[in-house]
Simulated scan of single mutants.
Amino acid sequence: MKKLFLTALLLGTFSLSYAQSDYYNDYRRSVSDINWQNVIVDLVLSKTQANQIYALNDRYSNYDSWNKVYVHNPDGWRNDRYSELERILGREKYLKFKNKYYKGQNPVAVYNRNKNNDKRYKHMAHKSKIHKKDLDKKHHH
């Protein structure tokens, strides 16, 4: 019994830390998926704005530094990052940035959608529906 409990405890801890690292991976992609030099040229940003963007992109150089800030609110990075980007770029250039790099969508929502498309649990819903139908059939006969 004790062994089963420990396994459940370890699995719970693992799945929690796995989810946390998913958020971090989204954060890393938000930095690495975009060619920031192109953004700076496209939007005709000042040297100051360029430096602020590079500083923002370098803010969390590794998982630990990111996790210290977002351990209790792993999806908080999105609002923080994109409100900071909007502050650096200004409203008008931020809208141009969104249109070009996120097809006009709010980047916060784009990364939030990734979180909701988690494939790990999709098969469970399918199994539970099948199971429910089987149970219903048994009760009707």
Results as ranks from 00 to 15, higher is better:
residue 133 K to S: 15
residue 31 V to T: 06
residue 81 R to E: 06
residue 91 R to V: 12
residue 22 D to V: 13
residue 107 P to C: 05
residue 97 F to W: 04
residue 82 Y to N: 02
residue 129 K to Q: 14
residue 46 S to T: 07
residue 48 T to W: 04
residue 66 W to Y: 08
residue 101 Y to V: 02
residue 112 N to E: 12
residue 104 G to A: 00
residue 107 P to R: 00
residue 37 Q to I: 00
residue 2 K to L: 11
residue 2 K to V: 09
residue 93 K to N: 08
residue 132 K to V: 15
residue 4 L to D: 05
residue 64 D to G: 10
residue 139 H to A: 14
residue 81 R to P: 02
residue 97 F to N: 02
residue 124 M to E: 11
residue 82 Y to R: 02
residue 20 Q to K: 05
residue 59 R to Y: 07
residue 31 V to S: 01
residue 9 L to T: 02
residue 43 L to G: 02
residue 5 F to P: 01
residue 104 G to E: 02
residue 141 H to G: 04
residue 18 Y to L: 08
residue 97 F to A: 00
residue 11 L to Y: 01
residue 119 K to E: 13
residue 92 E to P: 02
residue 132 K to E: 15
residue 36 W to G: 00
residue 116 N to W: 14
residue 103 K to C: 07
residue 138 K to R: 15
residue 115 K to F: 08
residue 86 E to N: 09
residue 116 N to G: 15
residue 50 A to Y: 04
residue 98 K to P: 00
residue 119 K to N: 13
residue 26 D to F: 09
residue 83 S to H: 12
residue 132 K to P: 08
residue 28 R to P: 00
residue 26 D to K: 03
residue 116 N to L: 15
residue 111 Y to T: 05
residue 18 Y to T: 07
residue 81 R to D: 04
residue 134 D to H: 15
residue 101 Y to L: 01
residue 105 Q to H: 08
residue 12 G to P: 01
residue 30 S to E: 05
residue 86 E to D: 09
residue 1 M to A: 10
residue 54 Y to S: 10
residue 140 H to A: 15
residue 57 N to P: 00
residue 13 T to G: 13
residue 66 W to V: 04
residue 72 H to N: 13
residue 134 D to I: 14
residue 46 S to G: 06
residue 66 W to T: 02
residue 79 N to M: 10
residue 127 K to E: 11
residue 46 S to V: 00
residue 82 Y to I: 03
residue 99 N to H: 07
residue 137 K to Q: 14
residue 25 N to V: 10
residue 84 E to V: 11
residue 5 F to K: 08
residue 78 R to S: 03
residue 135 L to V: 15
residue 58 D to E: 10
residue 141 H to F: 08
residue 68 K to I: 09
residue 2 K to Y: 11
residue 139 H to P: 09
residue 76 G to W: 05
residue 138 K to N: 13
residue 100 K to I: 09
residue 5 F to Q: 10
residue 70 Y to I: 04
residue 98 K to H: 00
residue 89 L to A: 01
residue 99 N to S: 09
residue 103 K to I: 09
residue 127 K to S: 12
residue 24 Y to S: 03
residue 52 Q to N: 09
residue 68 K to S: 12
residue 85 L to W: 05
residue 36 W to N: 03
residue 16 L to P: 06
residue 114 N to K: 14
residue 75 D to V: 07
residue 33 D to R: 06
residue 80 D to K: 06
residue 127 K to I: 12
residue 2 K to Q: 10
residue 47 K to I: 01
residue 131 H to S: 14
residue 119 K to S: 14
residue 24 Y to C: 02
residue 43 L to P: 00
residue 91 R to I: 11
residue 90 G to Y: 03
residue 134 D to E: 15
residue 118 D to W: 06
residue 75 D to R: 05
residue 31 V to G: 04
residue 25 N to G: 10
residue 112 N to H: 11
residue 48 T to I: 07
residue 11 L to H: 03
residue 21 S to P: 03
residue 74 P to L: 03
residue 108 V to E: 04
residue 91 R to T: 13
residue 10 L to Q: 04
